[in-house]
């Protein structure tokens, strides 16, 4: 029998938030349609490095494996993407995995993205309904506007855009493209638009939309193909108008 084909992984590991990173290499048996998560699962079953040294299984986060939950974002061969939707056949080997260091590392490839959820609080990322009880029927919506909203609502808070954005990181307080653009989603909604001013004012604060430097990496790496730069430009228009309102309407 011919020798088993393998896939070579070089994984940047880190035992804890304050530990020093180190790399370990693994050989994983090749299979057609093998993706990065499936390969990490193989390492769980046999946590032995390329040199035959026993080690601990690699820690990472994943849930749905269908590219909707956003959990398994990591840096693969230098770029932020979803590990579950990355087939080993489609990228050059050896495959280098690293945590998205824009965020604090918890362990190995697992990172702490809670800052993104905090940012969603800051932009008031919800519709202010009176309650879940029966009220009126919601207003009808222009189906084209609704389609735009649907596109933005695909954002799964994976953090690819934050990882790729040069203006997001420990050196800056920018909340990043994803939470910023979510503000537009709620402003588009007929009921959500009642709080449009509040959201725009929140975006005008430090770390808000003014921190966007238009590197436009976000739109390139978004796994959901959300036209982030288009909506950022729209929001820029909106905050400029809001600034005039703040000055002249009071």
């Amino acid at each position: 029998m011919s020798e088993q084909k393998t896939v070579h992984f070089i994984i940047e590991r880190q035992d804890g938030p304050d530990s020093k990173p180190y790399t370990e290499e693994f050989l994983v048996p090749y299979r057609p349609a093998l993706n990065v998560v499936a390969a990490l699962m193989e390492i769980q079953k046999k946590p032995v490095t390329k040199d035959g040294k026993k080690t601990t299984p690699v820690v990472w986060e994943c849930n749905c494996l269908e590219k909707v939950c956003g959990a398994c974002m990591m840096v693969i061969n230098g770029k932020a993407r979803q590990a579950c939707a990355t087939l080993v056949d489609q990228i050059p080997q050896p495959i280098r995995l690293a945590p998205a260091r824009t965020f604090p590392v918890i362990r190995d490839l697992q990172i702490d993205r809670s800052v993104m959820f905090e940012s969603l609080k800051r932009i008031r990322g919800w519709i202010d309904v009176d309650g879940s009880w029966e009220v009126n029927t919601a207003p009808i919506q222009n189906p084209y506007t609704a389609a735009t909203a649907y596109e933005i609502a695909h954002c799964m808070t994976c953090g690819c855009c934050l990882e790729a954005c040069p203006n997001v990181g420990p050196q800056s307080d920018f909340i990043g493209p994803a939470p910023t653009v979510q503000a537009y989603l709620f402003n588009l909604n007929p009921l959500g638009s009642f709080n449009k001013d509040k959201r725009l004012n929140a975006l005008m604060e430090k770390g808000g939309i003014t921190s966007c430097g238009n590197s436009q990496n976000c739109v390139q790496v978004c796994p959901k193909n959300i036209k982030l730069t288009t909506y950022l430009a729209q929001l820029n228009r909106d905050v400029n108008k809001q600034a005039l309102k703040n000055i002249f309407n009071k």
């Binding site: 919800w126 609704a146 609502a153 989603l185 009921l191």
Partner: peptide
């Protein structure tokens, strides 16, 4: 009302 972008 909560803003789910249902298809219309």
């Amino acid at each position: 009302r909560m803003g789910v972008p249902f298809t219309r």
